[in-house]
Design a protein around this nucleic acid. Structure first.
Length: 278
DNA sequence: CTGTAATCCTGCGAGC
DNA sequence: TGCTCGCAGGATTACA
């Protein structure tokens, strides 16, 4: 579900609600999230405070206060929303919805709830924020907004994989998922089946600009809600109303009226205009 | 290095 | 009405 714009929205929503809050209790449901997590770590964070909430790619990081004073390091929580994950803050008395698998009670009669119908999400504890950042940087490519055109061009042109696979590759560029990959290809008029190495330098530049433009607009719209996604304050996204390619199979291209086609690429349904995108 | 498929899950709509 | 099938914003692994 959540790609970069959705995760960014969740993080921005949660920040004012969670920053500085003290964690009083951690309650896990019986069902496990994707990554088996030992309630062992729950005791490590009880009594600590959430110092910062940030995003890296589609991952959410909570910087926690340090129970064992060490000037340069701190523990942290690493969360991923998978396909159907929702992170919201609710008053303790508000009834819990089904599929709520993790609850962090806070010091102001509210609690952070992790709900995830399909349980593809994960929650892991790291004793060291330095180790966590190293882990993420090893696993993920640059943030789209920070990536240089040269860096991007080099990665794309060095590969004989198709564009769809390249854009979905988190190690190449972090945060792009199925929706925004299709939208970026549409905007830059590049067919998602094109091989990376077949792109000209100008194509790559245009593609990166399209990625940044699409992600920026989607963040402004608080992300896209197809079905499950809600932000940290429970609001749905609005960007789904601006899709030009994703989910528009058979509908007229907004540029040329040709019907949008759908094809499976990199194992994911990919939507494109057969006339505009080459 | 590629691509493809299966895996982890639940729910929903399409089609019969 | 009820059933099966395929598909869904992701990530990882195995295998050809």
């Amino acid at each position: 579900m959540p790609e970069l714009p959705e995760v960014e929205t969740v993080v921005r929503d949660l920040r004012p609600l969670l920053a500085g809050r003290n964690i009083q209790q951690v309650i896990a449901g019986k069902q496990k999230l994707r990554r088996p997590w030992m309630p062992a770590w729950s005791q490590s964070i009880v009594g600590g405070t959430i110092q910062a909430i940030r995003r890296r790619g589609k991952w959410i990081v909570f910087d926690l206060s340090n129970a064992f004073p060490a000037p340069h390091d701190r523990p942290a929580l690493l969360l991923h929303l998978g396909m159907t994950g929702q992170l919201t803050v609710a008053e303790t008395k508000t009834p819990k919805q089904d599929h709520t698998h993790l609850i962090f009670s806070l010091d102001n009669a509210t609690e952070l709830r992790f709900r995830d119908v399909r349980r593809f999400g994960s929650a892991d504890w790291f004793a060291s924020i330095l180790a966590l950042d190293e882990y993420l940087n090893e696993k993920l490519g640059p943030e789209p907004f920070l990536m240089t055109a040269n860096e991007f061009t080099q990665s794309i042109r060095a590969s004989s994989r198709n564009l769809k696979a390249l854009l979905l590759d988190q190690a190449l560029i972090a945060g792009v998922g199925n929706i925004y990959a299709d939208e970026a290809c549409f905007l830059s008029r590049l067919h998602p089946g094109r091989l990376g190495k077949s792109l000209k330098e100008a194509d790559c530049r245009r593609l990166l600009e399209a990625i940044v433009a699409v992600l920026t607009r989607a963040i402004e719209g608080r992300g896209s809600t197809i079905k499950d996604y809600i932000g940290g304050s429970g609001l749905m996204g609005t960007y789904q109303g601006e899709f030009r390619a994703y989910g528009r199979t058979g509908e007229p291209c907004l540029n040329c009226k040709a019907p949008i086609e759908m094809e499976r690429l990199a194992g994911r349904s990919s939507h494109f205009c057969p006339k505009c995108q080459r």
